[in-house]
């Protein structure tokens, strides 16, 4: 388990940049937790069916009807940067 834990890979996947100090601290804490959860290996889990809902509720589907959306101003009010009604971000292609 822990020897496979590469904090750089994981922070990359999670899109969170980490300082060296953070890496050291988090690596240590995560190791402790991962060791703790090892105990689960001793539970016999064969054939266990998974329900996403804890009460096994079955999905209900919504009727295809459109309703009023957010006002454009409300949709944009938290936007860090805006142009011509768009959200603006630094380039997503290089």
């Amino acid at each position: 388990m822990s020897e496979n834990f590469n904090i750089d890979d994981v922070s990359n996947l999670a899109s969170i940049e980490l300082s060296e100090d953070e890496k050291a601290k988090l690596q240590k804490d995560l190791q402790i937790i991962l060791e703790h959860v090892e105990a689960l290996k001793n539970v016999d889990i064969k054939d266990e069916k998974i329900d996403i809902h804890p009460l096994s509720k079955v999905l209900e589907l919504r009727k295809d009807e459109s309703k009023e959306s957010l006002k454009h101003e409300d949709a944009m009010m938290n936007s860090p940067e805006t142009k011509d009604g768009h959200f603006v971000v630094p380039p997503s292609i290089e």
Binding site: F5, S15, E22
Partner: peptide, 29 residues
């Protein structure tokens, strides 16, 4: 940042506290 990806990386680095980062990383793993 100069790209979207860098912006997201940095924003999440600065915006989240340690415990949140810890749990996101644990869950990602």
């Amino acid at each position: 940042a100069s790209t979207s990806y860098e912006m997201m990386n940095k924003t999440r680095s600065v915006g989240f506290g340690e415990e949140v980062k810890k749990r996101i990383l644990l869950g990602t793993y």
